[in-house]
Amino acid sequence: MSTLTRPNVGRKTPRVFYFMVLPALVIFAVFHTVPLLSGIYFSFTNYAGYGEWSFVGLSNYINLFRDDRILNAYGFTFLFAIVSTVAVNVISLAVAIALNGRIKFKTGFRGIFFIPNILSILIVGYVFNYLFSNSVPAIAQALGINALTTSILADADTAWIGVVILSVWQAAAFNIIIYLAGLQTIGGELYEAASLDGASSWRQFRSITFPLIGAFFTINMVLSLKNFLQVFDQIVSLTAGGPGTSTESISLLIYRGGFEGGEYGYQTANAVIYLIVIIAISFVQLRILQRREASF
């Protein structure tokens, strides 16, 4: 076989592959890279979104660090993202293990648990908004639970919990699927051998299941933290950043200040900083988590 192949063919990539990549590259550049670069460009100006503008150097960036509204938004966003990431991974891993076990209607359940992922966050958000504002207080009143008779979204100290509940409910679906895929890569003979040695199910989980799905755990942690740091739709539909500014996330602040507040240049600078922060966090997270994955 090898004698029939001409030596050059293996080394030189046929031109057709480049043509295949080209459309995607052009679309990506036009709709992603160009806007990104123009955004970075405007972060050095006082552009209001319309009209005339001039260069202001680094002053947008300097003012960002003096703005306590932005620091508060960072505080809320990180609190929300960390709590939600932990909660969503614990819950979806537990559900995935249950769905991987020998239960009846397994496929049916898997389908049901995936439904939240295909629903639009905004629609689910408005449904949850109604539940939190009307249904939960009504039920609490009937049961005599005083703490829940007012909507949790109406209190600046508890509104973020409502956002976490919605986000975790919605995001768990996708994480369950990834964990399920991971669990199916583990062969049954490992558990068989472990149970012959008398290992408890907790021991089996700790020593077999969890190390072997390490790569899936990493990707779920990185993706969910990144997604939660960019939280936007959930807040728009539940609290609109309120009460007060207690649930104002960074994305929401960028949108509000930039488009509604006429400070396009200033908030673009905020967005550039945030882009760098997210990249840095994802990178660090990957490095740390990959180190503790089991290698074969």
Binding site: G242, P243, G244, T245, G257, G261, G262, E263
Partner: peptide, 13 residues
């Protein structure tokens, strides 16, 4: 009042 000042949320709070 400039529209970038979050007047409504502050009043609500």
């Amino acid at each position: 009042i400039p529209s970038s000042l979050p007047l409504a949320p502050l009043l609500q709070e």
